[in-house]
């Protein structure tokens, strides 16, 4: 260590040793983070969504007011061979959410879901689904804090990211936002069910997944792209968020 280096280090350590009290709060971070959360889901504004996806989303609009059925929401397309067993959370709201995702996915899908620690005001289930053609991230969040979901995500360019976005007012006063496939760093589809108080459920599916193993040199912030498209469509996610919301409401005494 040279003289300059030593003096620089010493001066810097002294400079920060008399730091004033930290006045920012955790709540400030959470509030600001929630307000911008939808924007953070996409890193770059994406290309236009295909007409096929747009038409599928339009179907979601047309079914917006009808109750969710318990039938699988996606056509069953069993892959060749057998898949290993699912791994799902078994306790708490995470288990309820995971069970709904399971019930609204083809039986041939293998699901690997886990309840995330999340932060105050949300319960999340993260993981992936695999139809035999590549893992696809599944991320479902129950936002329990009033105001956590912005009033109109379709007006948020960060949320839409170049994809189509439809808002459907439901009979109970909630609004369903269905965002078709957006091609950003990776391809995503999303659906958000927002109650009038800003609570609700959101779901996202990507054309890749996040390796959960801890590594010495993680690919920081990068998703492993495994597929051409997310495993679920926006329409399917719309059905899932409504079913999750209904299941969680049934749990509430």
């Amino acid at each position: 260590m040279s003289g300059v280096e030593t003096r620089v280090r010493h001066a810097m350590e002294q400079a920060v040793s008399a730091a004033p009290a930290y006045t920012g709060t955790y709540d400030d971070v959470i509030r600001a983070g929630r307000a911008r959360r939808r924007r953070s889901l996409m890193l770059v504004a994406g290309a236009a969504v295909t007409a096929v996806v747009a038409s599928v989303v339009w179907v979601a609009v047309s079914i917006g007011g009808h109750p969710v059925t318990s039938e699988p929401a996606v056509p069953v397309s069993p892959p060749p061979g057998t898949q290993p067993a699912d791994r799902l959370p078994t306790r708490g709201e995470a288990a309820v959410i995971a069970r709904v995702v399971r019930n609204h996915s083809p039986g041939a899908f293998r699901l690997f879901l886990y309840g995330g620690p999340g932060v105050a005001g949300e319960i999340s289930v993260d993981g992936w689904a695999d139809d035999g053609h590549g893992r696809s991230r599944v991320y479902v969040v129950h936002e329990t804090a009033p105001g956590a979901i912005e009033a109109n995500p379709c007006r948020d360019s960060g949320f839409t990211a170049g994809g189509t976005c439809r808002a459907v007012r439901l009979h109970d006063g909630s609004t369903l936002f269905v965002r078709g496939e957006a091609d950003t760093t990776y391809k995503t589809v999303m659906a958000v069910l927002r109650h009038p108080d800003g609570t609700g459920v959101s779901a996202e599916s990507d054309n890749g997944w996040f390796r959960r193993l801890r590594t010495r040199h993680p690919q920081f912030g990068r998703e492993i792209v495994t597929r051409a498209h997310p495993i679920y469509t926006a329409t399917q996610l719309a059905v899932i968020v409504r079913a999750v919301d209904a299941a969680l409401n049934r749990q509430t005494p």
């Binding site: 971070v29 959470i30 999340g118 912030g221």
Partner: peptide, 16 residues
């Protein structure tokens, strides 16, 4: 920290 919160669903599984 706000940026981290926005990405927490993905970052929480990583080192660093």
């Amino acid at each position: 920290f706000v940026r981290m919160y926005q990405r927490w669903g993905r970052l929480q599984h990583r080192d660093g």
